[in-house]
Design a protein around this nucleic acid. Sequence first.
DNA 1: CGTAAAATACTAGCGTCGCTAGTTTATCTG
DNA 2: CAGATAAACTAGCGACGCTAGTATTTTACG
Lengths: 189, 189
Amino acid sequence: MSIAERKERQRAERYELILAAARELAEADGWDAVTTRRLAELINYSQPVLYSHFKGKADIMAAVATRGFEELATRLEMETTNVTDAADVLRNICAAYLDFARSRPVVYEAMFVLPTRIKFASEETPPALRAAFAALVAALGPDRQEPVFLAEVLWSALHGMVVLMQSERIPAEDAEVRLNILVQKFRSD
Amino acid sequence: MSIAERKERQRAERYELILAAARELAEADGWDAVTTRRLAELINYSQPVLYSHFKGKADIMAAVATRGFEELATRLEMETTNVTDAADVLRNICAAYLDFARSRPVVYEAMFVLPTRIKFASEETPPALRAAFAALVAALGPDRQEPVFLAEVLWSALHGMVVLMQSERIPAEDAEVRLNILVQKFRSD
DNA sequence: CGTAAAATACTAGCGTCGCTAGTTTATCTG
DNA sequence: CAGATAAACTAGCGACGCTAGTATTTTACG
């Protein structure tokens, strides 16, 4: 059944092609510019082929978001495992989170801002998303009361800073100062 | 010129009618359901009359948001002036902010989430918005270093909690616990 | 190798969106 | 009452997400 394998591989390649095109288009002109017609033209297929891979535009965005969860989890876990200076794990994690949001703003948007069908804080939550959150919890250090709630508050603060900066509601150039304040408030000592 | 006055008053009434219809429709079915056609039908006028009052849909949403800023500022200032227990001003302000977001989710969305033409942190910032932010700064108490940045971080945390709850990315039922943690972290003593 | 069947991609179109041009109706002025 | 001005309307443009139905290619089999 080598020929079936080839077809499957080609399908998978086209799947990746769509995802890449969607991300590039979003990075260039925002998610509003990601239309099924433009996507189809970018990958040199007709519009309906998209619907053989995805249920619709929302499904494409969810797929991009899922990839984002994996990348974010990887980046955060790097900060917890490669502990050169254990004292500043919290700061490094927060900085890594903000850095991810700054480097992939539209992916971040799909992950955490736009309406999504992805379930959070439930059984169906993607593993990568759970892992990213676990890294946050770990960064707050052991022996904490209510570590999950504490991590949720920290995450809220980080997320708030990201979206308020991205929507130009607070100045982006002061990110460092705010990070310092935030870390100081959540430090365990 | 009494007749011109009457016309102007009728125009102002229709302006309010549009705003009220937009808010009601958004509260019922979300901002996506607020279309110019539905709005026109709700106020019993044809679609293009909307464009004699507003530049477009975004302008209508900005007007709803502006009203929201005024209501939020009023609510927050109430907590700073009616100081029954001065010690808990910070907590009351935070609670009032969260309560506003919970009671007017779609107005909050227009104010702080959706792309907006309203300028933040600049000369053109609406007075009500400045007042609301000033209440946050005041709630953090006097004798603080970098009070604006500190307030921005607090606001980020509050905003993050709101949007993550509204988009069901963190459970809404634990709002109280998170509020307690947040206030404790930002208390001055 | 030829043909029927199944899979696959296409063309065309539906309903809806924000917005606007052009026209008709209503109102005011002389 | 006639003409000018203002204000509403009808109709339509291009684009959107999505889908039904058709044509084409690929597969399986005699």
